[in-house]
């Protein structure tokens, strides 16, 4: 495994917090809109952002992929969105859950909450809950908006309406503070969604990224592509001393030495930083690099034999 890859991986994982902050800022470039109490209405919103970021956030630069998918399938014209599905497949293959670990504003928000110094709880025994997000993706994002429709063929965005806490955090709270009309219109649905947001906040302090692990449909979609993503985790078996430090450091409950491209791995790089022999690193490219590694090993063996 090249020293270059190892060095880049170390640097990326060390500065991850700054990359997350930068990604959140880029996703929400129109900051003055927070004071105006209005939304950005430019053509940029035709394009989706990679992370979970509500398009009703005053500063949002692009559209939320999950919200956009439901908007298309819930419209009277379409019952499936090729545009958003294609976009998500591309991102899933190009980056996988690296997006969750480095680019998602709501993931970063939960991580900041988890830094609050209190007792922390493990999610290892709650592993079955990780399957819940796939049900959320299938039922609330794909099926209900497409098939539970009104007389004119329009469906509700069920995930955005009943479950997503990001709309309240980024949309309802700042908009209601700046706009008295919106403040007056908030009712029972807001109370329900605000309760979800408060629950996610409380859980995020105790557990690491509870929403990403158990509920996020976007994370579920990217997770399906983690095994075939070009962005991969790589473990050098020759350097690994099986100390188990990487598995203990992983807050997503993944053992990178056994399943480097596990569906739950968000490429946060905690295993990279924990490894005493620098056996773990990021890899980007087609295939899994085993053939190149084998070729390099064979070349090295041949060279050694010649020298002898």
């Amino acid at each position: 495994m090249g020293k270059k890859f190892s060095g880049i991986s170390q640097t990326m994982s060390r500065f991850r917090g700054w990359i997350q902050a930068g990604a959140t800022l880029l996703t929400n470039l129109h900051l003055p809109n927070f004071l105006k109490g209005g939304l950005y209405q430019g053509a940029g919103k035709t394009v989706c952002v990679p992370g979970l970021n509500c398009y009703s956030c005053p500063a949002a630069f692009g559209a939320c992929p999950i919200g956009a998918f439901q908007a298309v399938v819930g419209s009277s014209k379409f019952s499936f969105s090729y545009y958003i599905t294609g976009f998500l497949i591309l991102l899933g293959v190009l980056l996988g859950r690296f997006i969750c670990g480095f680019l998602c504003p709501f993931g970063w928000f939960q991580e900041l909450l988890h830094k609050i110094p209190t007792k922390k709880l493990s999610t290892k025994r709650l592993k079955p809950l990780t399957y819940l997000k796939y049900a959320v993706l299938l039922v609330m994002v794909f099926l209900l908006p497409a098939f539970l429709v009104n007389d004119v063929g329009m469906g509700d965005p069920f995930f955005c309406k009943y479950l997503c806490p990001q709309g309240v955090l980024e949309g309802a709270i700042p908009l209601s503070l700046a706009n008295s009309g919106i403040r007056a219109a908030l009712g029972k649905l807001f109370t329900w969604k605000f309760s979800i947001l408060l629950s996610v906040i409380a859980l995020s302090v105790l557990f690491y990224r509870p929403f990403c692990k158990w509920l996020c449909p976007l994370g579920a979609f990217y997770a399906l592509f983690n095994r075939v993503s070009l962005f991969q985790m790589k473990v050098d078996k020759n350097k690994c001393i099986s100390c188990g430090k990487c598995a203990r450091a992983c807050k997503m409950d993944v053992d990178v030495t056994k399943t480097p491209n596990h569906t739950e791995c968000i490429r946060c790089g905690m295993c990279i930083r924990a490894c005493p022999t620098k056996a773990v690193c990021f890899r980007y490219g087609f295939g899994d690099g085993k053939d190149k590694a084998k070729a390099a090993e064979t070349l090295q063996t041949n060279n050694n034999n010649r020298e002898e």
Binding site: L39, C54, P157, G167, G171
Partner: peptide
């Protein structure tokens, strides 16, 4: 997508 994203999503904000 554009027509939905430029308007306030009433469902999203509650």
């Amino acid at each position: 997508v554009l027509s939905k994203a430029i308007k306030l999503c009433l469902e999203c904000v509650g």
